[in-house]
Design a protein around this nucleic acid. Structure first.
Lengths: 131, 131
DNA sequence: TGATTTCCTATTGAGCTGATAGGTAAAAGG
DNA sequence: CCTTTTACCTATCAGCTCAATAGGAAATCA
């Protein structure tokens, strides 16, 4: 299940897309508009910044803004950054060691198919689609 | 993410489908074949029994068997019984109270779409497909 | 200098997961 | 009748993750 971190990240990105004009948007405002904890958002945004999905400027007049057009962000991209793991089963997870039974496992194909379906859906929608 | 409970349930059902002849299959055998904890399986099977997906007989010569043809079990049905929740976000969960922001929420549509895609996939595959 | 804002890191309570454990009840075989 | 085998029931537990909260440091601008 998608955690609050990922869900909040999506809402913040959407908020930025809708509320950024020329300047930078302070998280204080976003937290207020979206009714989210400012302190919690402060932990989430560095993840997005690290992947160059937003730029952050400190100090008065600072805040965050997007680095691309809303159309340029697939939702899947946002969630992959903020969620620890999107794979539906642990044996498909990012750093999982190869399952010893993989060659004989009758279920792995099903899970891989599910994984594909999820990722395809998430990557087929962009921030713009949600505005 | 799908828990071990759901994954093991699927493996057990598949094992039953493949190893049941006329009689009943003891979980001891399944645990051995699938390398799963018998005690843990004993907690999972009552969930399936409750929904009449398997029949269980106690005592010597007892065990479990399927109640339908493998073709009759959609994987989604199995997982919905054993997983606490399949919804990708908590606001779509079974017993969730209506989200106060639902009418204005820009992300709910996306999550509902994801939920649909997941359920459609899971219900499109049957036990037979995995054999 | 003061206000604002990001940035960094530690801590914590609650809840879930994935078992393990110990025993009871039923059914069949000898 | 006794023993074995099996399902059934319920309690417990360690480890982990989640969702915050907290306190402060560093940067930037007026």
């Amino acid at each position: 299940m998608i955690s609050t971190r990922g869900r909040y990240a999506l809402r913040v990105m959407l908020d930025l897309a809708q509320n950024q004009g020329e300047g930078y948007v302070p998280m204080k405002d976003v937290a207020l508009r979206q009714n989210l904890s400012l302190k919690y958002l402060e932990q989430i945004l560095p993840l997005l910044k690290q992947k160059n999905m937003v730029v952050g400027i400190q100090g008065k007049g600072g805040g965050y803004r997007l680095t691309r057009e809303p159309k340029g962000y697939a939702i899947g991209e946002i969630l992959r950054v903020t969620e620890k793991e999107l794979a539906p089963v642990s044996c498909l997870a990012e750093g999982a060691e190869e399952c010893a039974l993989k060659s004989t496992c009758k279920t792995i194909g099903f899970w891989e198919g599910l994984n594909d379906v999820i990722n395809e859906y998430m990557d087929s929608k962009t921030l713009e689609d949600l505005m």
